[in-house]
Design a binder for these strands. Structure first.
Lengths: 350, 350
DNA sequence: GCGCATCGTTGAAACGTTTCAAAATTGTCA
DNA sequence: TGACAATTTTGAAACGTTTCAACGATGCGC
C-alpha cells in the first residue's frame, strides 16, 4: 500500500546499468553512449521517474544555488514596501546573472524566526533591518554561511553595505535650516526593539540599537549645532514605516506642535505620510509646511508635490550586497554616498 | 589542509553519546536528560558546530517547507510589476500562516529555466503566466509535486485559479459602447510565444496560446456584437506589459488611427501607458480619449485621472493558489469574479 | 527484594544522490 | 594481430541527518 518513490537506483536497475551511469545520463549525458543513454531514458519514462531529486543531490554536492533574504517583517512586506522592493530588485538582478535563486525568509513570528533561519536551504544570507537585533544575525552566522548585512554594522567577520547616513541626515537638516526653518519636527523610524511609537526623546535616537538612527541623530545634531540648536529641542515622533501609521503619527505631531514649519522624515514613506497629515489639517505643502524625506523611492518624484529628499542608491545597495555574498572575499563594509534632491515639498517658511 | 566540517557525529562522539541522542538535543531537547543535554551542547559549542545541516535533514525528512513561485520573467519582475506584487502578497500571507517559505524561480533565460525548475528545493509550485507555454509547466509537474497554475488552464490533474476573463472583457467593452464609443482601439497583452509587439489581427487573440487572451477576445466580441461590430474591425496593438513599452505602442496606435475615441487596455499598466501616450499627443483623458483598464491595481485609483477599470481580486487569487498547494486535495479550478469600477478615465465621446 | 511501568539512550538503517578511481570496452596504428 | 590510447562503465564510498525498535536504567508499589 505504501507508494514507494522511484529513485535513480530503480531506473538504473531497470535499464541494467550502474547507478553511476544512470546519474550521468541526467547530468552529463555527453559522457554516456547514445545507445545506453536512450535505454536509461526509456526506463525512466516507463517508471515515471521524477528526475534526480534535488534533496539527494544537495546532500552530496553542496551548493544549493540560492540565497536567503532575511527581513524583519512578514513576507508580504517584501512586496509592499517600496524600499524593500528596490533593494530586492538589485539583489535579484545579480542573482539572475549568477543563476542563483532567491528565497524569502520572513521573521515576523519571533517564535519560528530562529527555526526559519536555521533550516533555510540557502548558500548565504542577506539580512536587512532586523528589529530583533543581533540574535537572528548571530543565528545566521552560526551556520558558517556568508552573511551580508544591509544598513547594519558589519564588522566581526561580517560584510555589510551601508550608506553615509550621517551625511544624509546632515544634508536634510541643513537644507531646512538654510531655508530659514527653526520649528522643525522629526518623524523617525523605529529606533530599537521593542518599537515605541509616539513621542520619544533624542537620547533614544543617539543610543539607538540600529546604526541608521544613531548615525542620523549625529547628522541632524551637527547641522542643528551650526545654528545653535540641540536635537533635544525638536519634537521627535517615532513611527512604524507604513503610510497609514506614519500619517496618524504625523497628525499627532502637528497637533501637539502647531507652530511646526517643517518636518524631517526618516523615509520617503513617512514623508508622504506627513504630507497626507498636513493636508488633513488643511496645511499646504510647502507653503505652510516643508517636508523632506529620505531614500528617493520612485513615488517621491511623482508625488504631489514632488518630494525633496535625500537620495540613496537603493538598487545599487542590493546589487553590492549580492555580489559580496558571491564573491566571498574577506569581510568588508561598503559605504555608499547620498545626495540631496531638491523638489517641491520644501520652501522658505512664511 | 582540507577543512573538514564538523558534523553531528563529531559532536556526539565528543560528548560520548550516540548520534541519536545528539540529534535529539537539537530537535527534541525535552527528551534528553538536562545533564546530558548540557554536555552535548558544550561539545557543540567547543567544536563550533553549525547546527544540524538542513541538507541532511531534508534528505531524511522530506518536507522543505517552502513553495516555489514560477514566473515568466527575470526575478526583479516579481518586485517591479504591481500585479505580480499583489499576487505575491496574497501567496506570502498564506505561506506565513503555514510557516512556509517562498522561493522565487525566474525563468528569464530559457536555457537554465528548465534546470531551475528541476532543481528548485521546494514542496510545490505556483506558476503564473508562463510565456513558454506548457513546457516548463510539464517539467514542474514531472517532479510529482503539487502545482497550481494562475490564469492558465488547469485540468489534466492540475489545479488552477482564474478569473472570469470573458465577463470582464465584456464589461469593459460594453461600458465604452454604452457611453457611445464606436472607434475603439485595443491594447493587448502578449498573446502567444513568441510575442509579436505591434498591430496584430483578431485571430491571434481568438486562438491565443493563453487562456486570458482567448477568453477576453470572446468577451469583447460578445459586447461588440450587440452593436453589430466585429472584433476584426478594431485596431489591435500587442505590447509587452511595461509602462514604457506600452506607452510607445499606444502612441503608435493613436498615430495610425487618429479617429480613435477610446482604448481598451488589457491591464492597468497598459492603460496608464495609454494615458501617457494620449497626453504626449495633447489629448485629454477622458474628454478626447476614454481609457478603460483591467486589474485595478492600487495605482489605478490614484492615477490622474483615476482609472476606470475591471477589478479582479488579485491578492485573493494569490491566497487561493497558495491554499490549493497546501490543501493538496483533488485538482480543481477556482474561478473568481470581476466587476467594473467606474472612475474618471472614461466619458462620452465628443 | 521483585515485578512493572517509565524514562533515556543506543545502534543501525534509511534518505537519494554524485563522484572517482579502477576496470572494462572500444578504437587506432604499425 | 598486438600494443597502446581513448572512451565508457562500474562499484562503492561519501554526503549529514532523523527515526525507531530495542535495550538499560531508574523509580514505584507491595
Amino acid at each position: 500500500m505504501k507508494k514507494r518513490i522511484v529513485k535513480l537506483a530503480d531506473v538504473a536497475k531497470a535499464a541494467k546499468v550502474s547507478q553511476g551511469t544512470a546519474s550521468n545520463v541526467f547530468n552529463r549525458p555527453e559522457l554516456v553512449r547514445p545507445e545506453v543513454r536512450e535505454r536509461v531514458e526509456a526506463s525512466a519514462r516507463r517508471l515515471a521517474y521524477a528526475g534526480p531529486d534535488p534533496k539527494g543531490r544537495l546532500l552530496r554536492g553542496g551548493k544549493v544555488n540560492a540565497i536567503g533574504i532575511v527581513m524583519a517583517d512578514d513576507t508580504a512586506y517584501f512586496f509592499r514596501d517600496p524600499f524593500a522592493r528596490m533593494l530586492l530588485s538589485g539583489i535579484a538582478e545579480v542573482c539572475d546573472e549568477r543563476g542563483a535563486g532567491v528565497a524569502l525568509v520572513s521573521t515576523n513570528r519571533q517564535k519560528d524566526a530562529a527555526w526559519r533561519i536555521q533550516t533555510a536551504v540557502v548558500d548565504g544570507f542577506i539580512v536587512h533591518c532586523l528589529r530583533v537585533g543581533d540574535r537572528l544575525i548571530s543565528l545566521a552566522r552560526k551556520r558558517h554561511l556568508p552573511v551580508v548585512a544591509i544598513d547594519l554594522d558589519g564588522g566581526n567577520g561580517m560584510s555589510s553595505v551601508v550608506i553615509d547616513d550621517r551625511h544624509g541626515a546632515y544634508l536634510a537638516a541643513r537644507h531646512l535650516l538654510d531655508l530659514g526653518h527653526r520649528k522643525i519636527g522629526l518623524l523617525s523610524l523605529e529606533a530599537a526593539d521593542p518599537p515605541r511609537p509616539g513621542f520619544v526623546d533624542a537620547e533614544r535616537l543617539r543610543s539607538a540599537e540600529y546604526r541608521t538612527e544613531r548615525e542620523r541623530a549625529a547628522g541632524y545634531s551637527a547641522a542643528l549645532a551650526e545654528h545653535g540648536i540641540e536635537l533635544d529641542q525638536l519634537p521627535i515622533m517615532e513611527s512604524l514605516n507604513e503610510r497609514q501609521a506614519g500619517a496618524s503619527h504625523a497628525r499627532e505631531l502637528l497637533a501637539a506642535r502647531p507652530e511646526t514649519t517643517a518636518i524631517i522624515a526618516m523615509s520617503d514613506v513617512l514623508a508622504l505620510a506627513a504630507i497626507d497629515a498636513a493636508r488633513a489639517r488643511g496645511l499646504r505643502v510647502p507653503q505652510d509646511l516643508s517636508v523632506v524625506g529620505f531614500d528617493d523611492i520612485p513615488d517621491a518624484a511623482t508625488a504631489d508635490p514632488p518630494l525633496t529628499t535625500i537620495a540613496q542608491p537603493i538598487v545599487e545597495k542590493g546589487r553590492i550586497a549580492a555580489r559580496l555574498i558571491f564573491e566571498a572575499g574577506p569581510p568588508r563594509t561598503e559605504t555608499l554616498g547620498v545626495k540631496l534632491v531638491e523638489r517641491a515639498s520644501t520652501a522658505r517658511p512664511r
